[in-house]
Design a binder for these strands. Structure first.
Lengths: 192, 192
DNA sequence: GTGTTTAGCTAATTATATTAGCTATTATAG
DNA sequence: CTATAATAGCTAATATAATTAGCTAAACAC
């Protein structure tokens, strides 16, 4: 009973490690070494082993992202708020490549917990959209579009999939403006 | 020299298996068993082992997708062509969950080959966009937006990440219309 | 036909995850 | 405070997958 470890500390260490070496290189062995313990000891905290650790990493990641975009939206509304949370999302993915990987990668074949984990982040989008004159169905479509775009764009960008790095910011802005225009169009229809 | 295997046959078998059980469950052992050989024999075809197999799977996936969206665009132009290739992309992801996983998952820390692999698919988008009056920079932004959206949307959908399954088609249509409107707006500016 | 390549094999090695069982430290009941 | 219970850590052992080494026989080249 030397290293005063708990689940949280271990998950944070694993997240840091994932960002540094990639999620695939976070093994129980090397994680334990980093924490100054032996790998079997990790089972005292995660009886489900590596699998459970990955799941917790996924949950931790989505909760972190939720917090970050929530803070990004403070004091902002409408288009400003949307741009803020989208940028925060993108930055999070860029700064936490490994964790972001875990957030998507893990979810294979386990949608239940993943749905739960993303619920908080999604509700931030819905709250921001409440400031617009949109019906429920429209909001669903818009949130899904944002989620799809943000996840894909961030993922591609993180992996260096966008050849020319020069204007990625411009591409991101272009995309956000395009979606915002779509929202504005729905507004105009509603006002008729 | 019994089983007349070659790289292509092995990759196709691995792809099928990935779609059935998930990419993480495609092990050399079980793949070899499926092919009627022993796992060390796979090294005669892939000296790089599992790693190389995954890379080949990634390449195979992007080339397949390229072919599929190319065919989807035949006889179509402008908005029709775009909708066709986007739907084909989405369907491909839905029908090849495991392979699609490999296409994204693998690329971690190896962007070179991934860039090569996606080039073909990307050029299909550029060709379709040639029918519009857009400058090069605008095309870059639009293609990046499509890629981001399609990858993220398809990935989330495949993993059951969109809670209510009822209107996912509508959400997809909404998103495509939104992006197309963005393109049309650029057109109108160009005509001034 | 003889010689070479090579796709397959078995056996052995390495690496990781995981389980079992032990121990000492911490926490708790009295 | 002391006795007792939990538990975080350990070592040793097991299981499974990837990989390497070296062998063999089928296919092929001439």
């Amino acid at each position: 009973m030397k290293a005063g470890l708990d689940k949280t500390k271990i998950i944070e260490a694993a997240a840091t490690m994932a960002d540094e070496r990639g999620i695939a290189n976070v093994t129980l062995k090397v994680l334990a070494a980093e924490l100054g313990i032996k790998s079997p000891s990790l089972y005292k905290h995660f009886s489900g082993g590596l699998d459970e650790l990955n799941k917790e990493l996924m949950l931790y990641g989505w909760h972190s992202l939720e917090n970050i975009i929530t803070k990004a939206a403070i004091g902002k509304a409408k288009d400003d708020a949307i741009m803020a949370i989208c940028s925060a999302y993108r930055n999070f993915a860029a700064e936490h490549k490994g964790l972001f990987e875990a957030m998507q990668w893990y979810n294979m074949y386990r949608s239940e917990e993943h749905l739960q984990a993303t619920r908080g982040m999604i509700s931030v989008f819905y709250q921001v959209l409440d400031a617009y004159d949109l019906n429920e169905e429209q909001k669903v479509h818009i949130v899904r579009m944002f989620r799809g775009f943000l996840q894909g764009f961030s993922s591609i960008e993180s992996h260096g999939g966008y050849g020319n790095p020069l204007s990625i910011n411009d591409s991101f802005d272009f995309a956000l403006r395009t979606i915002l225009n779509g929202i504005h169009d729905l507004q105009m229809e509603a006002e008729k």
